[in-house]
């Protein structure tokens, strides 16, 4: 088996340079690559374009990279939970490209399927359609949406092995799976790095061919954004 194992986040992030485009897995704070975000702050890489469904909160997730002004542009579907984000967006420091969520996920996935563009009805007749090619197929209009071209994809998985095979847990699969297939270089941090042969081949979500670097993560906070409960 080809060995994708690296020692830690610092080693995994080698080659990430100012101005690059990075996919960042997670939905809200669920399943975000916490170790890599911390290492990216330490590394100090600037002018990043981040493809991520959300932008974290002020003191966690991608919000931390906004505080340090390392992000130049966000490509997201929903960004409401972050005051610093709002400030930077209104002052013009931060560029924001809002993309319908299904289109965003599919554009990540397509990069891993080798499909350059796809037609979708999402956004037809809205401002999302401005400047895009529209094709009519069997009487219905579709927007042509392009696959993302990201220099790196950084994802968080539950389990993984040194061959780069990944299994996600519960709804932390979200954008992590399509993004894990979509980077020119994909970095995966995992909660449990397991020996080769332990993952059941039938149950693997992302085959190792898509993953270039994998490392055992540590100290996961796994913060909950909206804690909702019922009484016993």
């Amino acid at each position: 088996m080809i060995n994708k194992l690296v020692a830690n986040a610092e080693e995994a992030l080698k080659g990430i340079e100012d101005g690059m485009t990075i996919m960042m897995g997670g939905f809200g704070l669920c399943g975000i690559p916490e170790n890599s975000i911390t290492a990216l702050i330490k590394k100090g890489t600037k002018n990043l374009t981040c493809i991520s469904n959300n932008a974290g909160v002020d003191d966690f997730g991608l919000g931390l990279l906004l505080q340090t002004k390392q992000i130049k542009k966000m490509i997201s579907s929903y960004v409401g939970e972050n005051a610093e984000f709002e400030r930077q967006m209104l002052s013009g420091e931060l560029e924001v490209d809002l993309v319908p969520q299904g289109t965003l996920a599919t554009r990540c996935m397509m990069a891993g399927y080798g499909i350059p563009f796809f037609p979708t009805p999402a956004g037809v007749g809205t401002e999302v359609a401005i400047g895009k090619q529209i094709i009519n197929w069997k009487g219905r209009d579709y927007l042509m949406e392009e696959a993302f071209e990201a220099d790196f994809a950084i994802v968080k998985a539950w389990k993984g092995d040194s061959a780069g095979n990944l299994i996600f847990r519960s709804t932390a699969r979200n954008f992590n799976q399509p993004m894990s297939m979509g980077g020119k270089i994909t970095i995966a941090e995992v909660e449990h790095l397991v020996p080769l042969g332990e993952l059941v081949p039938d149950q693997i979500h992302t085959p190792g061919i898509y993953v270039h670097r994998i490392f055992q993560g540590s100290n996961y906070e796994k913060r909950i954004e909206q804690r909702t409960v019922r009484k016993k």
């Binding site: 939905f27 809200g28 704070l29 669920c30 399943g31 539950w158 847990r169 519960s170 709804t171 932390a172 796994k222 913060r223 909950i224 954004e225 909206q226 804690r227 909702t228 409960v229 019922r230 009484k231 016993k232």
Partner: peptide, 21 residues
């Protein structure tokens, strides 16, 4: 399903509103 009982929240299991479910 419904919201979890207190103490049984799972950070990996949320809905589209980011609520624990």
């Amino acid at each position: 399903g419904p919201f979890p009982f207190e103490g049984e929240e799972d950070a990996d299991l949320i809905n589209a509103g980011k609520q624990t479910v």
